[in-house]
Structures are given as structure tokens and as C-alpha cells.
Amino acid sequence: MSNDNTTPLDEDVADAWAAALEEQKDNEPAAGANTAAQTDTVRPLNPEDFSGSRPETTAEINLNMVLDVPVTLSMEIGRTRIPIRNLLQLNQGSVVELNRLAGEPLDVLVNGTLIAHGEVVVVNEKFGIRLTDVISPSERVRKLR
């Protein structure tokens, strides 16, 4: 298997791949063989499967792994649909009417998923939001369907 262009490292990698593929073939069941154990344990997952489940011990799950994962938190005042013709005519001072009434709560979204409603507040001359209604996890799962 030695060409003039191959190195001993290339041959080692090729040998490792060949061994891994051979091991995989040995571990796979024969084509068309379907054991009773496979049919009993394989089933599609539903969102309900995750709604009330708790790990048996705290050692099984390490929350520290996900605590530093960044997410996008956004507040939505409202939305509207306008034709591109009207969009191109917008300039400084233009007013765009939204689908919400004044005083209605804002939507709080995490990665595009609604998690709460709130109202605008001013804290130290900066805008903030006071959460008035938090959507329960089970309700969020129900909305995913």
C-alpha cells in the first residue's frame, strides 16, 4: 500500500480507519435482523417525555456545564408587516404603527422563544423590564408542538 507520495503517518491513519471500520462491521447486527430488544426499546420521543422528568441523583447532571452557555435575551414591543416600497420610504421622523396597544406588556424572548411578559421601567437612566408574568416550563413545551 506504499506509494511514493505516502508517508508512514498516512499509512498509520489508513490502518486505524480500516481497523475501526472492521470493528464496526463486527458490532453491527446482520442486515434484516431485528431483535425483540431493539423493537421494545426504540420509540420516538415526545416533548411530554421531558416535562416532569427529574434525574435520579444530582451526580448524573452537572449544571455547571450549561450555566456559561450564552443565550440571546430580547424584548419585543410589537411587530408589523409593511411592503418593501413603504420600508424604503422610511426616514428620520417616520412613525411605524405596531400591532400592540399602548400599555400592553412586552414579550420577553430567549433565543426567539417566549418566556415571559413585562413592562418597561427606567433604572439609573437606562431602560429595563419588570417581569409581570413568567411562562411555565410545561406551557413552553406545550407551545413547541
Rank of each mutant, 00 (worst) to 15 (best):
M1I: 00
N3L: 00
N5C: 07
T6F: 00
P8C: 05
L9C: 08
D10C: 13
D12Q: 15
V13S: 13
A14L: 15
A14R: 08
W17H: 03
A19S: 06
A20K: 04
A20C: 05
L21E: 11
E22F: 06
E23L: 07
Q24W: 07
Q24E: 10
D26C: 00
P29D: 04
A30T: 07
A30Q: 10
N34V: 14
T35G: 08
A36W: 06
P44G: 08
N46V: 05
P47K: 12
E48G: 10
D49E: 11
D49T: 05
F50G: 04
G52D: 12
E56S: 02
I61P: 00
I61M: 09
N62I: 05
L63N: 01
N64C: 02
N64S: 08
L67M: 10
V69Q: 09
V71C: 04
E76R: 14
I77P: 01
T80D: 08
R81T: 15
R81L: 12
I84R: 14
R85H: 07
R85F: 04
L87E: 14
N91C: 08
Q92V: 10
Q92M: 10
V95M: 09
V96T: 03
E97G: 02
L98Q: 09
N99H: 11
A102M: 12
E104V: 11
E104D: 14
E104T: 15
V110N: 04
N111T: 02
T113S: 13
I115N: 01
A116T: 02
E119N: 15
V122F: 02
V123M: 04
N124V: 11
N124C: 14
F127G: 03
G128C: 05
I129S: 11
S136M: 06
R140D: 00
K143L: 13
R145H: 07
